[in-house]
Amino acid sequence: MNVLAAEWLKIRSIRSNHLILAISLGAILLAVAVAMSAIAMYDSAPASMRAGARIAELEEVVLIVPQLAMGIMGVLAITSEYATGLIRTSFALVPGRRPVLAAKSVVVGGLGLVVGPVVVFATYAVSWWMLESRYPVAGFADRLPTLVTSSLTVAVYALLGLGLGAVLRSAAGAIAILVGLVYVIPMIVGNLPEPWSERLGSVMLGALPREITGEDLTSSVYGALLSPFAAAVALVLYAAVPLGSGLLLIRGRDV
């Protein structure tokens, strides 16, 4: 409990984390801006085209902002301590070391669990209030499962970032790998010939939320081969594997 209180204080007493939270929540404003441009465009369109007007789900469009921002918060939660030398103080205070990383996971993952749902549900509310009279917007009950799973990915990103940071000890390295995992590899996978594009596309982080809810993924670069249960396991593994490696490595390393 003591270590948890200390890690919570550490996270909240750093300015860059306030900025990261602001950027994450700024995704809601981004959604408002997209919605406003969609409204302007609808209103200026000839009546004949209005009936067929379509728009992508705003949550899916802006979710990447809190995902990446919280992923970077996770990375920095540990790499900034290595960069400043503070990690020695942390490990001298808690010689077991693992409780430090575990407490960081609880704090960073917990923030992700708050930020993700706030952004996703607020953005859905934005699309409902602003767009529903002009565009088809799926009803809340229909969207709910996907809203929930997408919002949980923010915590996964935060923990993935923390785990990568703990393993690599360098902000640049960890952020580069994080970006590689969520952008570069899916892009490359999307270009692969079948059946590999479909197979590998199914285990990409971005594919998992909608595989869990069994939503249609045919129009995306991702595959949809995993069962909901397997997709849920894969989602957990994205956070658990790097964090587990971090917990294993952190004990024996000189600092």
Binding site: V34, L76, A171, I175, A176
Partner: peptide, 18 residues
């Protein structure tokens, strides 16, 4: 480092994705 890499990623992936 984090802010600069984050911004580069924004320019290279996030904005073009949106």
């Amino acid at each position: 480092t984090a802010a600069a890499v984050g911004s580069v990623v924004g320019l290279l992936f996030v904005l073009p994705g949106i």
